[in-house]
Amino acid sequence: MEKNKYGHVAVFIQQHNSKIEAVSLELLGRATELAKELDTKVSAYLPCEKAGEMTKALFSYGADYVYTIENKELKDFRSLPYTKAVVEAVKKDAPCIVLFGATRTGRDLAPRVASTIRSGLTADCTELKIGSYTDNKAGKTYEKLLYQIRPAFGGNIIATIINPEWHPQMATVREGVMKMREPNTSRKGEVIPINVTFSDVDLAVKIIDKVIKEKKVNLTGANIVVAGGMGVGSKDCFCKINEFAKIINAEVGASRAAVDQGWVSKEHQVGQTGVTVRPKLYIACGISGSVQHKAGMDQALKIIAINSDPEAPIFKFAHVKIVGDLNTVIPMMIEAYKKIDVSKK
């Protein structure tokens, strides 16, 4: 698409049954900061059956313009109708940046949109920044590009990707890494409705049945995470991790090694190929601290590592180091916690 330097920072809004997904609100938070740096505004693209109260919520979380694309065919996510809806919004809005959550929906939709409008797309970013870029070969400098920062190669490297020429600059962003802002219900904005019609070809995929799995694990939103790794040793011992988490009101996390052993289900996996968490406190029990695990938890405010090996890599980035056997340390922590609890009452 034609470059529009003054274009808005846009966010695709993912909703399910008129409930907006947290990642979309997180992205609105980051979009307002980026828009400020770029001296522009924030747009939200909302394909749905009926926008209703959702537009108000989007204004309160930072949107200045909400493009509503309402159609009964947009009730549930399907690639083709949603692509058409977002592409129409992009054409009308001519944004400089479009962001999607790196959910299954976002990772299905964003590449199809990018291919339709022929622009670049970076997957699974963990950081976004504004900066300049000099192309030495072409002797050209670009100001205020979007730096799309992401881990690659199994988390072994961090790459900064840019789209100098082809706009809009598009990225999918991991859930849980950007901060939602406090909603301000007095904020107002403009609603811009867009009409779309669908052909039979657009509706080629039909959803016959759905099994909704309630998200039992809410790791991304947790204040405290207690995570167990290979060092936990067995499924029985992992129950003690669950118990400990319950007592201190925490969610349970795990390394991939623990998940692979079958001690805990995949939803609990933290890291490059699991979820990203940013709790106030992360207690890593028997986790060595591989780059892939680190990628999902090093944003925690405080990291406590319990490991019997004083040389374990996790001690290089943990704030609190406890060298010892988790089988003795965890009961001590429970003991200490109960004492505090009692003294407070």
């Binding site: 490297i157 780059v291 406890i322």
Partner: peptide, 28 residues
């Protein structure tokens, strides 16, 4: 459309770590 601007390998920057002994007093 996309360019790799820069790459860096993930290095563990050491941060200030507090050490607590693995006994009941330390944990308390």
């Amino acid at each position: 459309p996309t360019r790799v601007k820069e790459i860096h390998s993930v290095v563990f920057k050491s941060i200030e770590t507090k050490d607590y002994p693995a006994n009941q007093d330390g944990i308390n």
